[in-house]
């Protein structure tokens, strides 16, 4: 059969879909406590791990976690990256100045929390660096009330 004539039509759909997610009781309390400049984690009664952000189930020992503990506000950088780009709706855009992203082990927590470290030359960002949380003031009753981290002391 001869090569078929090919007519390809490109369609763009002119609407985006919006979703409304319930955050659930764990994140609800976490956000509320941020307003009081407290970072609340949840502790597993089985293996004793303390995770932040808090959630319902410990995957390791399959328990429902229900013991709230305050962690931070200081912690240690355990892993980091310097972004020379950012992603905006999936498209790469140059980041000038570069952005920092660190995994921070808050004092008292066993998990690492992702956050931005400001007030430091990205070249000086290192594992082991002590940082402290900086809160939005006044609080906006939102996840971003924990705004960023900066070098401690």
């Amino acid at each position: 059969m001869a090569e078929q004539e090919r007519i390809v039509v490109t369609a763009v759909v002119p609407l985006d879909y919006t979703y409304n997610y319930r955050v659930g009781p764990y994140l609800e309390r976490y956000i509320q406590e941020l307003g009081g400049k407290k970072i609340m984690a949840i502790k597993c009664g089985g293996c004793g791990k303390v995770v932040v952000p808090p959630r319902k189930v410990c995957g390791e020992c399959n328990r429902v976690m229900d013991e709230w503990v305050e962690v931070g506000p200081e912690g240690t950088v355990e892993n980091y990256t310097v972004g020379h780009v950012t992603l905006n709706k999936g498209l790469i855009e140059p980041a000038d100045p570069p952005v920092t992203l660190a995994l921070i082990k808050l004092d008292g927590a066993t998990s690492f929390l992702a956050g931005e470290v400001r007030g430091i030359d990205p070249a000086d960002l290192k594992n082991g660096l002590r940082v402290k949380a900086v809160f939005t003031d006044p609080a906006e009753n939102s996840l971003t009330d924990l705004d960023h981290f900066e070098p401690a002391g």
Binding site: Y21, R22, V23, G24, P25, L27, R55, K56, V57
Partner: peptide
């Protein structure tokens, strides 16, 4: 409407 829990909490 389950307004009290998030998706994964509901599944659990």
């Amino acid at each position: 409407k389950r307004k009290d829990v998030n998706i994964v909490e509901m599944i659990s």
